[in-house]
Amino acid sequence: MIRVYTSSVIEASADTVWSRVRDFNGLPQWHPGIADSRIENSEPSDKIGCVRHFHTRDGGMIRERLLALSDYDYSCTYAILESPMGVDDYVATLKLTPITDGARTFAEWSAEFECAEGRERELTEHIGAGVFQGGFDALKRHFGRR
């Protein structure tokens, strides 16, 4: 099992950041790597079990199922059903925690998955530094000050 962990500090309250990232169908609105997104079968995007169907900017198609969503814990867990990355049993969690010292947010994005031998480093780098940190960088730019 490969584990990727990326964390950052966003200069806005957890409520504010959560309202930007909560929508399971909202990646294109805040993540620069995502081109479009829809929820399959016209289900609500906060219904556990719904599937988002989206494309990355480089054209890759990804389907992911929402496994858990908590407005109380500011956390969202999902699994990849289909993707061009070559990962199996991929489950990821995006979680926010308020930093009481200033209106800031501690943001964590982690994933566990299996992959072909020899691709661990490349995938860890792509997911951790590319997808996750790329998303955090966009949030940091959006909420400014840092």
Binding site: Y5, T6, S7, S8, V9, T97, I99, F106, E108, G128, Q133, F136
Partner: peptide
């Protein structure tokens, strides 16, 4: 404690 990987800092709860 948790690692803030972005900047090698520490989140303390």
């Amino acid at each position: 404690l948790k690692t803030v990987t972005d900047g090698d800092r520490t989140f303390w709860h």
